[in-house]
Structure formats: structure tokens, C-alpha cells
Amino acid sequence: MTGFRPVYRKEIYSFFASPTFYVVALIFLIISGYFFFSAVSYYNILSFQGMQNPMWREQLNPTEMVLRPFFMDISVIMLLVCPLLTMRVLAEEKKSSTSELLFTYPLTDTGVLLGKFFATLSVLFIIILGTLPSLIYFGTLTHLRWQIVGAGYLGLALLAGAFISLGVLASSLTENQIIAAVLAFGALLLFWVIGWSRAFAGPTLARFINYISIINHFESFAKGVIDIRDVVYYIIFSTFFLFITLRFLESQRWRG
């Protein structure tokens, strides 16, 4: 796996040097910030109503009513911004014809690809961590279960990995970054909405669709449960698409 470290460092560096990163981070954090603000405001209103109704009062739980919807909201924003981060990963190299150079270095394909994958993942995770200050402040206002916050971020990281692996594949297919972004977005959206069609499918197919659906596996993290099945789903998902990307890059060499 030679090549992981230099590629990782180079990618991180070029991310932080590019304006794309700051624009994406800014938009991501403003939208997620708005969701956070509205979730807390809504909770505030509900608490106010709960003062009068003791039955309501028992239901008030900040982890259930603020954290859970907040993490679900972040996953939606991630769906939108992820293709923007992954679109350039391989397409740019192809366009500027540096990919031949890159792949003729004494570096393994796996090392190069994983370097790029983990660099993008790190960058996205750093953006996600931008939501942490708000949560820390929220934690000072009420009792927050930090283990659940941890589970949520773990889930987001795994989800990000799955998104990025698919984005990287899309980026390897074309040298046009816009096409790469559209491809990635379309594929991700498809994996997202496929779960909605389980109502019309037969029982066996419904189970398969349920499993494939990318967001179904995130719910458990958002509510504070770490389920090995969901962790494995995301890892398998990422591994599969990285493997396909690798085979595709390899095939370019012998296809000429």
C-alpha cells in the first residue's frame, strides 16, 4: 500500500488550498446551523407547552427531540454536498492528464485510491465537526447524553464514507467534474429513495430493498444505538464501490 501517505497529504493540502472547500463548508454549516436553531427553538416551544401538561412533560427528551432530528437533517445536507467534494478527486487528474503520471509512480493503485478516499472523508468529517460547537453549547443548557452524540457522529462518518466511495467511482468514470457530480448525486439519491418503494414490493424484495436503502441504516445511530449490522452495511458499501473503482482504473490500463 505504498503511496497512501503522500497521496493523503497531497489531497488534504489541495482541499484546504481550494476555494471549493470553504464554500462547501460555509453552505453546509449555515444550513445545518439553521436546522439546529429551529430544532432547539421548537423544543423550547414544546417545553413551554409542557409546563401546562404533565403528560407532555414526560415526553420531553432533548436527545430524542433535538439530537435525533438534527442528525437526520445533517445526513440530508451531506447528500447534497458530498458530490461537490468528490467530483474532482479523479476527474481532475484525468482532465489534466496527471492520472497517467500518478499511476506510473511507484505507488500501488490501492494506496493512491485509499489516500484520496480517506483524505476526502477527513475533509468532510472536519466540516461535520463544525456543528460540534452548537452541540457543546446546547449541552451546557440541558442534560445531553454525550454517548449518543458520539454515536451520531460515528454514524455520520460511516455514512460519509459510503457517500464518498460512490462519488469517487463516479469521478473515475469521467473527466468532466460536472458529470461526475451529477452522476454521484443521482446514484446517491437513488440509494436514498429506494427504501420508499418497499411498500409496493413483495416480501422478499422488500427485505432486500430495506437492506440496500442507504438511510435506513442511519436511523439507529441517530437514536443512540450502535448496531453491528448497520456498521457493517456502511463498511461493505464503501469497500464494494472502492473495489469497483479500483477495477475500473485497472481496466483503463489494459483497454489502452
Binding site: 470553504y22 463548508a25 460555509l26 454549516l29 449555515i30 445545518s32 446551523g33 439553521y34 439546529f36 436553531f37 432547539v40 427553538s41 423544543y43 423550547n44 417545553s47 413551554f48 409542557g50 409546563m51 407532555w56 412533560r57 414526560e58 415526553q59 420531553l60 427528551n61 432533548p62 463544525g130 456543528t131 460547537p133 452548537s134 453549547y137 446546547f138 443548557l141 440541558t142 442534560h143
Partner: peptide
Amino acid sequence: KKGQPLILTSTQSRLVFLIPLVFVPLFVI
């Protein structure tokens, strides 16, 4: 379960707005 109602003071609610929507984006810029 014991309910945990949260009633924000005006300073607190302003901070809930400012931290995610002003401070963090400003830091990024």
C-alpha cells in the same frame, strides 16, 4: 422517563442562533 423541559432565556436563545449561524460560518470565512 423524566421530562427535561428547556426554557431558554433571551441571551441563551440568541446564542443558539449566533453560534451555528454566525460564529462558525465566520470562522470558516
